[in-house]
């Protein structure tokens, strides 16, 4: 009978054979802990890669449930998960256990917030981003800079994938490059669509960088913000090796997102509805209506736009504030808002 370490040697043999990893690198990967924020398309692909590569401890954080429209690209989920509306973090944990039972996976069905970020990410050597919104990314960025722990930004929309390594003290941080989140409405996977190939590119690139970090080869990590458009075949890169001296986050260490400032304030309002007090996101009703029309019933007047999709009704006001009817689930309401109005 083979010992467990022999079985492990067999499992990872092809990865160990790769000169960049080797036996010592594999050992380090097995002893590391990675947190993955968001287990949707990019997150499911990244979680699968990290788990198969043998990352010893994985923390999966996601606020959503599996739906049928996820199956086109979210590689860890199946039709039964969608029928049962299983939380994505838990569905991913179960699926990973089927192909690598030797690692530890913790699933958290939660929205990452300033209130729980320290608790949920505690112990992680590295944080990988696979969220669907800017707000969580700025929270991750402030956390990473505060703690001196790296994170990797990765996102995809349409055929476009983009990623950047943030190594506090060495490279620019997200706020150096993009001081603020885009204002107004933004394209999301639910309005602009998404190719499953683009999310896999984003996930593959961030996990390859993660493997370099986990095996102690930080100097080999890419120092650029990189984008790949798989439809136009355009690749572009912006250098990120120098932090901006006047950066709010890594320069002044003013962690507004850890303090929860600028965060959309959410309250339950009345029965079966959630109000999202988004500020500073002036909404162009004509543009939003045109984008939403393929996805549900849209009506608007001078003051508000009403969008009905299944049992949920989103009422959006000129300043970006919205009321989501048909749920008391704050995470779901926030998610609907991120999907259809903007992240």
């Amino acid at each position: 009978m083979q010992s467990s370490s022999c079985k492990q040697a067999e499992r990872y043999s092809r990865q160990v054979l790769f000169a960049g990893i080797g036996p010592a690198g594999q050992e380090r990967i097995g002893q590391s802990q990675v947190a993955l924020v968001g287990v949707g398309a990019t997150g499911a692909a990244a979680a699968g890669l990290l788990a198969r590569a043998g990352v010893g401890r994985l923390t999966l954080i996601d606020r959503d449930f599996v739906e049928e429209s996820n199956l086109q690209r979210q590689v860890l989920f199946d039709e039964a998960d969608a029928r049962e509306s299983l939380p994505k973090a838990e569905a991913a944990r179960r699926k990973i256990a089927l192909f690598n039972s030797e690692i530890t996976v913790e699933a958290h069905v939660a929205d990452l917030t300033p209130g729980n970020v320290h608790e949920l990410l505690r112990g992680a050597d590295l944080v990988l981003d696979a969220t669907d919104n800017f707000e969580t990314r700025y929270l991750l960025n402030d956390y990473s800079v505060e703690q001196g722990r790296p994170w990797i930004y990765a996102a995809a929309v349409g055929a476009y994938a983009v990623t950047m390594n943030i190594l506090p003290g060495e490279t620019a941080c997200l706020a150096c490059i993009f001081p603020e989140a885009p204002g107004g409405t933004v394209e999301t996977c639910d309005t602009a669509g998404i190719l499953n190939t683009a999310v896999n590119v984003a996930a593959s690139m961030e996990v390859a960088e993660a493997l370099k970090y986990l095996t102690g080869q930080q100097e080999k990590m890419r120092r650029t913000l990189l984008s790949v458009d798989q439809w136009s075949n355009e690749w572009s890169e912006v250098r990120t090796e120098r932090p901006r001296t006047d950066c709010r986050s890594c320069g002044a260490r003013d962690f507004v997102h850890l303090r929860g400032e600028g965060r959309a304030h959410i309250t339950l309002c009345g029965r079966n509805s959630v109000q999202i007090h988004e500020h500073g996101r002036p909404v162009d009703f004509a543009e939003l209506a045109a984008r939403l029309r393929p996805h549900g019933d849209v009506r608007s007047n001078d003051m508000l736009l009403r969008f009905q999709r299944g049992e949920h009704v989103l009422t959006v006001f000129k300043d970006g504030r919205a009321i989501v009817q048909g749920t008391t689930d704050v995470g779901l309401a926030r998610s609907l808002y991120a999907r259809f109005v903007g992240a």
């Binding site: 398309a41 696979a130 996977c189």
Partner: peptide
């Protein structure tokens, strides 16, 4: 060289400049 947003209106272009542009994308999860 990255051109910070605050310097875009005063940074002049020259013929033959090599420009790289990357979009800030928010998706990935859903």
């Amino acid at each position: 060289e990255i051109v910070p947003r605050s310097a875009w209106s005063e940074t002049r272009l020259c013929d033959g400049d090599k420009i790289e542009i990357v979009h800030f994308v928010g998706g990935g999860k859903r």
